Amino acid sequence: MYVSLADKLTDNGSSTPAGLVAASLAHAFALFVAVSVGANISGGHVNPAVTFGAFVGGHISLVRSFLYWIAQLLGSVVACLLLKLSTGGLVRLEENKRQFKPKN
Rank of each mutant, 00 (worst) to 15 (best):
L5M: 14
E94L: 06
T51D: 02
R98V: 07
T87Y: 03
S24F: 03
L73Y: 09
G75A: 03
L62H: 08
D11R: 10
V21I: 12
G19P: 01
L9E: 06
F100R: 07
Y2N: 08
L82V: 10
I41S: 04
L93R: 13
Q72T: 12
S61C: 03
V35L: 01
I60A: 04
P102I: 03
A34M: 11
S42K: 00
A30T: 06
L85G: 05
L90K: 13
G44Q: 06
V3I: 12
A79K: 02
V56M: 07
Q99I: 07
L67R: 12
L81T: 01
N40T: 09
L83V: 10
A54I: 02
A26E: 04
T87H: 09
S61R: 01
Q99C: 05
M1C: 04
V91C: 11
W69N: 04
A23G: 05
G19R: 04
D11A: 10
R64G: 00
V91F: 08
K84H: 12
G75E: 05
L81K: 03
A18P: 00
L20C: 02
G75L: 08
V78R: 07
V50E: 04
I41Q: 07
P17R: 06
K84D: 12
S14R: 12
R98I: 02
G58C: 11
K101S: 10
N104Q: 09
V3Q: 07
S65I: 00
S61F: 00
A30V: 06
L83T: 06
T51M: 03
V46T: 15
G57N: 09
G43C: 07
W69G: 00
I60L: 11
T51E: 01
P102Y: 05
T51V: 11
T16R: 13
V56L: 14
W69Q: 04
V33S: 04
K97L: 07
C80F: 09
L9D: 01
A18E: 15
G19C: 01
L67D: 12
L74V: 15
A39P: 00
L82T: 04
F66H: 09
Y68W: 08
A26K: 05
S76N: 09
F29N: 09
K101Q: 14
E94N: 11
S24E: 13
Q72N: 13
A6E: 07
R98D: 15
K97T: 08
K103G: 00
L62Q: 09
V50L: 15
A30L: 08
H59E: 14
G38Y: 10
S42T: 15
A22K: 12
S86V: 06
P48K: 08
L74K: 11
N12S: 12
S65R: 04
N47L: 02
P48D: 02
S4M: 12
G44V: 03
S61P: 04
V46P: 01
Y68L: 14
A79E: 03
D11N: 10
N47R: 06
D11G: 01
A54S: 08
R64Y: 13
A79T: 10
A71M: 09
N12H: 15
V46I: 15
L62I: 07
I60P: 03
A34S: 13
G89I: 03
G88A: 07
L90C: 02
V3K: 09
F55C: 03
F100A: 07
V63L: 14
A49P: 00
S36M: 11
N47F: 12
A49S: 12
G88I: 10
A39V: 12
G57F: 05
S76M: 07
L5H: 05
V46N: 02
T87R: 06
L62N: 05
